[in-house]
Amino acid sequence: MAYRDLGSSTPGNAFTVTLTLNVEDARALWNAAAEKALQAPGMTLADVLDTIGPREDPSIADCIAMLTAPAAIPGCGLDDFQVSPLHSAELIQLPFPAMMPAANG
């Protein structure tokens, strides 16, 4: 029986993890992000407002980043972390009948 040492370093094994979210309630998102931010030592409400904006006009990307920023994963080094909106053009789908050519008649 062959034994493979899984504890050894394997450089060059990079992985991408993708998470796509649809924000349905910006207030609930802001509340959760603000609550998490306020748990950091020394964080004040003014710091929260500077980081994620006010509840009435939140920075959606910053709120998502606050809640999804990865914690340290044993045996891994974080190379990149980004939160960015999808372009609205990528989300538009025309209804099937609108894509059909008009009938001559």
Rank of each mutant, 00 (worst) to 15 (best):
I73A: 13
I60F: 06
L67D: 11
F81R: 03
Q82N: 10
L78I: 07
F81L: 06
I52A: 07
F81V: 04
G53I: 08
P85G: 09
A61D: 14
I73Y: 04
A69M: 05
P74R: 10
I52G: 02
T68Q: 06
L67A: 08
G77D: 13
T51V: 00
P74Y: 09
D50N: 12
R55M: 13
G53H: 04
C63R: 04
G53S: 10
D50A: 14
D80L: 10
G75V: 08
V83N: 09
T51S: 06
I73T: 12
D62K: 08
I64T: 05
A72W: 00
D79R: 07
S88G: 00
A61C: 06
D80N: 13
H87D: 13
L78Q: 14
E56M: 12
H87V: 09
P58M: 15
D62M: 11
L67F: 09
M66E: 15
D62Q: 11
G77N: 10
S59D: 15
V83C: 05
F81E: 05
I52S: 05
A72N: 08
D80G: 08
L78H: 08
L78K: 06
D79M: 14
Q82W: 02
A61S: 12
T68S: 13
L78D: 06
P85H: 04
D80A: 14
I73R: 12
D62L: 02
Q82Y: 01
E56R: 12
I73G: 03
F81K: 02
M66T: 15
P58T: 13
I52T: 01
C76I: 00
V83T: 05
P74T: 12
F81D: 07
P54C: 07
L78A: 08
I52H: 00
L86D: 08
A72E: 12
A65T: 02
C63S: 01
F81I: 01
S88I: 11
I64P: 04
D62S: 12
S59E: 14
D79G: 06
Q82I: 08
E56Q: 14
T68I: 00
D57Q: 08
D57M: 05
G53P: 04
P54I: 05
A72F: 03
L67V: 10
P85M: 00
A69P: 00
T68G: 02
G53F: 06
A69K: 09
C76V: 03
P74F: 08
M66Q: 12
A65Q: 03
S88V: 08
V83H: 05
P58A: 12
F81S: 01
C63H: 07
I64K: 04
H87A: 13
D80S: 12
P70G: 07
T68F: 11
I60N: 03
L67P: 04
G75F: 11
P70V: 06
L78E: 11
I73P: 00
I52M: 01
C63G: 09
G77M: 06
P58Q: 14
G77T: 15
L86W: 03
L78N: 01
R55Q: 15
